[in-house]
């Protein structure tokens, strides 16, 4: 299909899913036309409710996303899911399997599911995730659910993309719950104890409540603890209500604007850095950089000296 990105844009905006999928690839891969497409779409963004779902692996994030999707679809014409899975650091390949839990919704006309590989980006998202979310937002998806990589401690970047972040945990993680408290708990707007029909749910909820009391709260928002059983759908309505409540609070308190500003800053700084590095590399030539790398590897010079030398040239 040879289609100029501008045509894609028109067709995607008219609701053509194939064009939407292609457009997302153009933006994800930074193919020619990506910047133009984003330029056109950006003014149309800011209307979607963007909900982040994060938490350790095995917590049932995908199953919960599937439940939320069903519930949101009852009230929203178009819902999108962006699910991020890790890329292999060795081959660069990835297995993206979050869709498996959503199979009964594959043919839902109002739902668009897109998998993304993290492609070496840390933080629980792919580098292009926020751009992908922007495109879906601009195309009129009223709710965008963003499911992060399930690693546990450092997937805090979702806070840059989502209006409301749900941290999903389960009973029986034992000491692992300690591990999530450092970074992830801080960014959670809603805490979810999934698989709450299992033994230990009370303790998990109690542990979370206790952790919340540690340290100074960043805002006046007190993250509620919601119990769900994603496998049966129990608690989905309460979770949706908690997300809505947070959304209303964030809009009123200025938290949403503050977060969007921080997100914009991160996005601009990322692009600036990429662009500077690219320009620098073009000017220096890959060969010169490679020579410097080889000398560092041979211990002929140290990495700082190599950078100094390259920048002086």
């Amino acid at each position: 299909m040879t289609v100029a990105p501008s045509d894609l844009l028109g067709r995607a905006r008219a609701g053509d899913k194939r064009a939407t999928a292609r457009l997302l690839s153009v933006v994800e891969n930074d193919e020619p036309g990506a910047a133009d497409a984003l330029r056109t779409l950006y003014p149309l963004t800011g209307h979607a409710e963007i909900v982040g779902i994060t938490g350790p692996p095995g917590g049932g994030k995908s199953t919960l996303v599937n439940r939320l999707t069903g519930a949101y679809r009852a009230t929203t014409d178009r819902v999108a899911v962006v699910a991020v899975d890790p890329s292999s650091p060795f081959s660069g390949g990835a297995i993206l399997g979050d869709r498996i839990r959503m199979r009964e919704r594959f043919l839902d006309e109002g739902l668009f599911i897109r998998s993304m590989a993290s492609r070496g980006h840390s933080g629980g998202l792919a580098r292009a995730t926020s751009r992908i979310v922007n495109v879906l937002d601009a195309l009129g998806y009223g709710v965008v659910l963003v499911e992060t990589v399930g690693v546990g401690q450092e997937e805090v970047e979702v806070v840059r993309v989502a209006d409301t972040v749900c941290l999903v945990t389960v009973p029986g993680l034992g000491d692992d719950i300690q591990a999530i408290k450092a970074g992830v708990l801080e960014i959670a707007d809603v805490l979810v104890v999934n698989k709450a029909d299992r033994p230990g749910a009370d303790e998990t909820a109690r542990d979370l409540a206790q952790m919340l009391t540690l340290g100074a709260p960043r805002t006046a928002w007190k993250a509620p603890i919601i119990r769900t059983v994603a496998a049966t759908g129990e608690g989905t309505d309460q979770l949706i209500a908690a997300i809505a409540k947070h959304r209303a609070w964030a809009a009123e308190s200025g938290e949403r604007d503050a977060r969007r500003r921080a997100a914009a800053r991160a996005e601009v700084e990322d692009l600036l850095r990429d662009s500077l590095v690219r320009r620098l590399r073009d000017r220096l030539g890959q060969e010169r950089v490679e020579r410097a790398i080889a000398r560092v590897a041979d211990r002929a010079i140290d990495p700082y000296a190599a950078v100094d030398e390259l920048l002086r040239e």
Binding site: S88, G93, I95, G97, R99, I100, R103
Partner: peptide, 13 residues
């Protein structure tokens, strides 16, 4: 195997 060959594989079940 395809992942190990550097590809992004959507597994649908």
């Amino acid at each position: 195997a395809l992942r190990d060959a550097g590809m992004e594989v959507i597994y649908t079940g």
